[in-house]
């Protein structure tokens, strides 16, 4: 489905056709699911955040908060990233083995599950915003500009955030090496 079609779906949702939102979800869910999983570090939290994000996006469409200037996908990326950041802020620390079971567990291989856990552990000390910056640029493969647009900030601020986050990750790696060695 092209971006134009998605905009049409968005327009239909705005006019009160809630069912048209299904097409938006169907078309965007795979990328957004992966994004949420990488940001949250596990599938269960990702599902919650993604659902919150979609509900928020639906209300945004109905209320006319999507102005059509950006691609709908970009707008959704921003909403879902923010939903994840909100959830990360509220997240309470939990043990490594206490991962909550996912409700709609789809195509998530054992390897991917392990990778998510590693990613979560690696980024655990970062602030939610720094974590999101790292994931968008270094895991999702976005440019700094795209990541800045997604998180609603400037490229300069994003560069600063990335520098700080990378420095923190390197220091953490060095500390771990020193402890183990």
């Amino acid at each position: 489905m092209s971006a134009v079609d998605l905009r049409l779906c968005a327009a239909r949702v705005k006019q009160g056709d809630a069912a048209a939102f299904r097409q938006v979800v169907e078309h965007t869910r795979v990328n957004l699911y992966r994004l949420a999983a990488r940001l949250m570090g596990n599938v269960a939290d990702a599902e919650d955040a993604l659902q919150d994000g979609y509900v928020s996006a639906y209300r945004g469409l109905v209320d006319g908060r999507y102005d059509g200037r950006a691609k709908l996908e970009t707008w959704l990326y921003r909403i879902v990233a923010n939903a994840c950041i909100d959830q990360l802020r509220k997240r309470k620390p939990r043990g490594e083995e206490s991962e909550i079971e996912a409700k709609f567990d789809g195509l998530v291989s054992a390897e991917a599950r392990v990778a998510l856990r590693e990613l979560d552990a690696m980024l655990a000390t970062l602030s939610p915003q720094d974590r999101a910056a790292i994931v968008l640029v270094h895991v999702e493969g976005m440019t700094v500009r795209e990541a800045a647009e997604t998180l609603g900030t400037t490229e300069g601020a994003m560069e600063q955030r990335l520098l700080r986050a990378r420095a923190a990750l390197r220091k953490k790696g060095d500390d771990q090496e020193a402890t183990s060695g």
């Binding site: 709609f104 195509l107 291989s109």
Partner: peptide, 15 residues
Amino acid sequence: LGDATRAIAPADTFT
């Protein structure tokens, strides 16, 4: 880690 999580996709019931 990005490569290892590239194939993640939601279940059909998610929508």
